[in-house]
Amino acid sequence: MNRLIAATLLLALALLGGCAHTAQQSTKAELFPLMYEQKPRSIVVLPPINESTAADAPTYYSTTIQEPLVFTGYYVLPYEVSSDILAHEGITDGHQLYDLPLNTLKEYFGADAVLFTRIKKWDTSYAVVASYLTVAVECELKSTTTGEKMWNYSGTVVVDLTNHNTGGGLAGLLVQVVVTAMNTAMADYVPYAMQANAIALNAMPYGPYHPQHEKDSEYKVFVPKAADK
């Protein structure tokens, strides 16, 4: 998993490096001052809010968030437990709590912060000879004490599923269509969801169990295009 994160960061750096002159950077402390003021220690993750076209996206996406979040250095309540308890209370979608006061989550779970995750895209676009798989997620951390948004960031991974190594000509085209269709059918979104999470969580100030805790305020991250939502 560490390697996967490292790989994603490397990939993100390689990709972002190309357009660094257009994207604006800022420090974590400038972008997310409340994280350094309120110093949350524990996080409860709510069931994902699904804005994608895939009905099963939350089921699978929710298996990808616990592990990378733990590595940011916070105490993360086990999602398998907290979500089961919430489900018995009729809460199966983070959207249900998004506009409500969150202090009840502080009282029940003892969590300083709530992580909302939004699945923006989880699909494959088809074309005759090309198809692209896209996973896009947006993460938002709110304080259970004040209800304020303390942090948010998004991660998008686009994968070209087209096999580019087939020969030319009509036969080649046919082969390519078949291969693309097969790649699409077999496409597994979860590894890419993990990469999208890694991109988003890389911008989160480190928590108390991380060696870089409170030492990362000057770390630079790219300013999200849509800073406020």
Binding site: N2, R3, L4, A6, A7, T8, L9, L10, L11, A14, L15, G18, V158, V159, D160, L161, H164, Q195
Partner: peptide, 23 residues
């Protein structure tokens, strides 16, 4: 890595390999 930007999957594989080697 610049060469293979046209194919993110390949870029991802290369990056993964590179990262694995680094580690």
């Amino acid at each position: 890595s610049t060469h293979s930007l046209a194919n993110p999957l390949r870029a991802a594989q290369l990056a993964l390999l590179a990262a694995a080697l680094c580690v």
